[in-house]
């Protein structure tokens, strides 16, 4: 086992030189270290200017997504060990404009998330005094998987379509729309259809399928999108044979 390992880190300093560069750092190697631990070591002991996001370091806050040797990963949950002997290349997530170093701009996602109305929509709200909406474990199972999204953006980074067509609503936002569409308490599917049925909704997707592969929480956004396409298509053809129904 080596004593140290080299990291090639993507550096972009908007106030300095124009083009990004890769800078090499040598850090101690430890079996139990994640890529994030190595970055923290650089930041604390070698170069305080290195910029990146992190918070929970237990794979649930979704902050620390980066590209490590070409793959989008949560750096707090990615050991150094499989990349030995290195060097390990660390870059920001693909598909997002880079603000600085390893920090991407996520505003686009936040706007899209809001556009798909990720909240319970009901014609009539039951007062809390009347207790909970009943929901059996089977009913919960229908949407549970899509509710596990931590918004870490790995799926967007893995999606070439998002990189090619930044207007695409994208995997996580569509999965979250489906999370509510399939919730037995929700009645808002028609409103979300307005957004999802646009070309930049589900139809931009060509099912590369990488979003579901890189998802650290097994949300399967690709599945959510294909299911929506099937349902929307069936609705459309049904509306052709049943007059008076709008797709």
């Amino acid at each position: 086992m080596p004593d140290t390992v080299k990291l090639e880190v993507f550096r972009y300093r908007p106030e300095g030189e124009g083009a990004p560069v890769y800078e090499t750092f040598e850090v101690p190697y430890r079996d139990e270290w994640m890529v994030l631990d190595a970055l923290n070591h650089i930041k604390d002991h070698q170069d305080g200017t290195l910029s990146y996001r992190w918070a929970c370091r237990m794979g649930v806050c979704g902050s620390c997504g980066m590209t490590v040797n070409g793959e989008p990963v949560l750096t707090c949950a990615t050991y150094l060990e499989p990349f030995l002997p290195g060097p390990i290349r660390v870059e920001p997530l693909h598909g997002f404009p880079v603000i600085r170093d390893l920090v991407g701009d996520l505003e686009d996602f936040v706007e899209k998330l809001q556009r798909v109305k990720p909240w319970i929509i009901r014609e009539e709200e039951k007062p809390t005094s009347e207790g909970e909406y009943l929901q059996t474990p089977e009913e919960m199972d229908a949407y549970k998987r899509y509710s596990m999204c931590i918004n870490c953006m790995l799926c967007y980074a893995a999606c070439p379509i998002y990189e090619l067509e930044p207007g695409f609503i994208g995997p996580a936002a569509i999965a979250l729309a489906q999370r509510y569409n399939l919730d037995s308490r929700d009645e808002g599917a028609r409103e979300r259809h307005e957004v999802l049925a646009e070309h930049e909704g589900v139809w931009s997707c060509t099912f590369v399928g990488e979003c579901s592969i890189v998802c650290p929480k097994d949300v399967d956004p690709a599945g959510a999108i294909q299911r929506y396409k099937v349902d929307a298509t069936l609705d459309f053809f049904r509306s052709l044979v049943t007059p008076g129904r709008s797709p």
Binding site: I120, T128, S129, Y133, T136, M140
Partner: peptide, 22 residues
């Protein structure tokens, strides 16, 4: 209890008993 129920109404996926109750 009211706050927790409100969260249920907002969609929080509380684990359920087989009869659908929290």
């Amino acid at each position: 209890p009211e706050e927790m129920l409100r969260l249920e109404h907002w969609g929080c996926p509380w684990s359920r008993n087989p009869d659908g109750r929290i």
